[in-house]
Design a protein around this nucleic acid. Structure first.
Lengths: 112, 112
DNA sequence: CAGCGTTATATTTACAGGGAAATAACGAAA
DNA sequence: TTTCGTTATTTCCCTGTAAATATAACGCTG
């Protein structure tokens, strides 16, 4: 029947979303560009939305995830902490494992 | 840090959503009440939304999932086919397995 | 044939969320 | 001290989605 099983995972802290696929994409873009505005542009996302996302991430945890600076040499910028980088890789690791599990379950559907 | 990993899974046919958690809830309510309108009321969902959901489900597959009848003894009704019932149990089985997998992954996050 | 309780469908209304734009704040460099 | 490029924040508008409303179709029952 051409079924596909898809999924979305996210991490919550205290009943609030802390990290999901969209935020991970944004963090990776920040790591790549070194700037929040450039990352937003790369993902075709409004700056406001991007800022809200990373603000929410930063407020959800004591350990800092991204550090932004305002003014200065190049006008400012944003960069990930080592903790932030390891969060990304762990999230993607878990996500891929989830997809893999779901792939093994597909036959259960086809055989109905 | 009190992390929780949450997830949402759904089944697609031809790039369209065929079955997800909301639709499964609705199908179970239909099975229980024997009526689409009663099921919608039980879930505090508008009748229109419920109807659109089951219409989408029925259009996504050749094998019938729910059968509705209009007019007649009690004014009409809706009931699941055996295929529909087995879809529900299989979906929930896979979903629970997914949650279980994610639980095993939680420590990876805590140990960052 | 009129009434009843459904499913089925169209039309209108209300509202929240997102985007765009305007503005402020900041610090280095020229 | 002016300029520049960025982050930070607010305000306004608009669109897309959900809800409410209205109405039709249907077939048994009495």
């Amino acid at each position: 029947m051409g079924f596909k099983i898809r999924s979305r995972i996210w991490i919550e802290v205290d009943e609030h979303v802390f990290l999901g696929e969209g935020r991970v994409r944004l963090l990776k873009a920040i790591e790549e560009t070194g700037s929040l505005s450039k990352a937003a542009k790369q993902l075709q996302m409004s700056y406001k939305k991007a800022w809200k996302l990373i603000d929410s991430v930063n407020k959800s945890t004591e350990k800092p995830v991204i550090i932004t600076s305002i003014g200065g040499k190049n006008g400012g910028g944003a960069e990930l902490t080592p903790y932030g980088k390891s969060l990304i890789t762990t999230f993607e690791d878990i996500n891929h494992g989830c997809w893999k599990y779901l792939d093994t379950q597909l036959e259960k559907l086809e055989n109905l």
